[in-house]
Structures are given as structure tokens and as C-alpha cells.
């Protein structure tokens, strides 16, 4: 049950991977309930995992995952069904607790645990449901309000346009196809311009145009933040600077990056 991490040679990032037993500088721990996400200071987000392990009851899913990601980097998590890809993403935003190890978000000189770091995180996953009785625009207005943001309708329409839902923002989500609903999840995740984007099966149910939207979202995220992508699709490995393969069963030598 060992995880493997390698760096793709054609990385768009100049950052150096400090994976496996990463040494972190002594950080200041934040007492703030909510990290500021609208500071004028340039984003300098870092995500550090140290000896992370997860298990369901007696069954160990993965263990010993250590790595550090900096702004501009993309980590792709791959592996067979049940290898713990989605579990890793849930640990990263505090929806589950790790069996062992630590997760720390370093942001503007403070360190945040996953639950406290949620304002810094945008999350897209097939099991993320939005309010079907509300329109796409009403969903975005609501989630902006609970995140203490007040975007104008023009900004929200623009966001819907970016994810390919231009002209459908006033329709109720119940009338959306599964692909359109998935696009709306991207709008939900990008609403607060998060420095960390967690994508579980990013292109599932999306058509070619939807996949192009995902390309653009990841490219934009690369300019200021971190992306972590869990996928089974080998075509999506190209998104990553680094690929973390979670292996439920130990097999052979690690595959070389392409």
C-alpha cells in the first residue's frame, strides 16, 4: 500500500518538489477562524502533507504520503478504484480526518488546518449537489453570500459564461443536464477565487467544450494557486507538474513520467 510520486519532465512550473518527509520552516499557527482571501498581497499559498495516512476501519487506504505544493503547481492523483484518490481530496478540505499525518496550508504567514482553510479552497466533485429548485444564478448568489461576498449580477453572469453556461443562468438547476450541472460546480468552486482548487474527476460528464473549460480553469489556476486533481483518466495526467499514484497493491517499479 505504498504511494508513488514523480515529477513530469515538461513541467510548466519551476518549483522544486520537496516530497517525502518534507521539512517545513517553523510556521506561526493562526487563531483566525477564517483566512483572508481578498488581500492585496500576492498569493503565496503552500500545501504541505506529512506522512498522511487514511483507513476505513481495519482497511488501510494509503499511508506515508508526504509532499509540498507551491503556488503555480498542479498535482494529479491517480490510481485504481478504491485506491483513495477521493479520500485524499476529502482529507485536504477537512471532510474526513486522516488516520495519521498532518495537512497544513501556509497562507500569508499563517498556517491553517483543512477545516479552517476552507475559504481558501474551491471544490469540484461529482457528488457535490447544488440546489435544484434554485436557478444557477441564485445558487451562485447564495454561495457568494454565505462566503461574505457580494458580486454583481454582471460578475456572476460572466462567471457562468466562463464555464459555458452563458444564457442558462436563470434556468433552475433541475432543468440542467448532468454536464451543465458539472459546469455549475466549477462556477461554485471559482466563485471566491480560491488559491487552492481540488478537482475530483474533473471532466466526468463533460463534453469536448466542457473539457476545454476545465483546461482553461486549470491554466488560470496555475497563474496564482495550487490545483489537486484526482482522476482515473490517463489523458488528465497532462495537467500535472507532479503525479501521485496511489497503489492499493504493491506492483513493480514506478512508471516514468511522460
Amino acid at each position: 500500500m505504498r504511494s508513488r510520486l514523480w515529477r513530469l519532465p515538461d513541467s510548466a512550473s519551476a518549483s522544486t518538489l520537496t516530497a517525502m518527509n518534507t521539512e517545513q520552516p517553523a510556521p506561526r499557527t493562526s487563531d483566525a477562524a477564517t483566512p483572508p482571501t481578498n488581500s492585496a498581497q500576492p498569493a503565496a499559498i503552500t500545501l504541505a502533507l506529512h506522512e498522511l495516512a487514511a483507513s476505513y476501519g481495519p482497511r488501510s487506504v494509503f499511508r506515508g504520503v508526504s509532499l509540498t505544493l507551491h503556488a503555480g503547481e498542479v498535482l494529479v492523483v491517480s490510481g485504481a478504484n478504491g485506491s483513495g484518490k477521493s479520500t485524499l481530496l476529502r482529507l485536504l478540505c477537512g471532510l474526513q480526518q486522516p488516520t495519521a499525518g498532518t495537512i497544513a496550508y501556509h497562507w500569508q504567514g499563517q498556517v491553517y488546518a483543512p477545516v479552517a482553510a476552507r475559504p481558501l479552497i474551491g471544490w469540484v466533485a461529482p457528488d457535490l449537489a447544488l440546489y435544484r429548485e434554485l436557478s444557477g444564478l441564485e445558487n451562485l448568489r447564495f454561495f457568494a453570500a454565505v462566503r461574505h461576498r457580494t458580486p454583481s449580477d454582471a460578475e456572476l453572469y460572466d462567471l457562468l459564461e466562463q464555464v459555458g453556461l452563458g444564457g442558462r443562468g436563470d434556468d433552475r438547476v433541475a432543468a440542467y443536464s448532468s454536464g451543465m450541472t458539472h459546469r455549475l460546480r466549477y462556477a461554485y468552486a471559482l466563485l471566491h477565487q480560491p488559491p487552492v482548487l481540488l478537482l475530483d474527476e474533473p471532466t466526468v460528464t463533460l463534453d469536448v467544450h466542457g473539457a476545454a473549460v476545465v483546461d482553461q480553469v486549470i491554466a488560470r489556476q496555475r497563474t496564482h494557486g495550487i490545483s489537486v486533481i484526482a482522476t482515473n483518466d490517463p489523458r488528465e495526467l497532462r495537467y500535472g507538474n507532479y503525479v501521485l499514484t496511489l497503489n492499493p497493491v504493491e506492483t513493480g517499479a514506478p512508471r516514468q513520467g511522460t
Binding site: C93, L95, R118, A125, D127, L128, A129, L130, R132, F143
Partner: peptide, 16 residues
């Protein structure tokens, strides 16, 4: 039942 708890947990403070 509508599985919207996840979206709410990620976006809103528990007290709110």
C-alpha cells in the same frame, strides 16, 4: 437527502 450538505459545509460557517 438532496446531498447539498457538502456544498454548504464547504462554504458556510457552522454557526451561520
Amino acid at each position: 437527502e438532496r446531498r447539498t450538505t457538502l456544498a454548504l459545509r464547504l462554504a458556510a460557517r457552522p454557526a451561520a
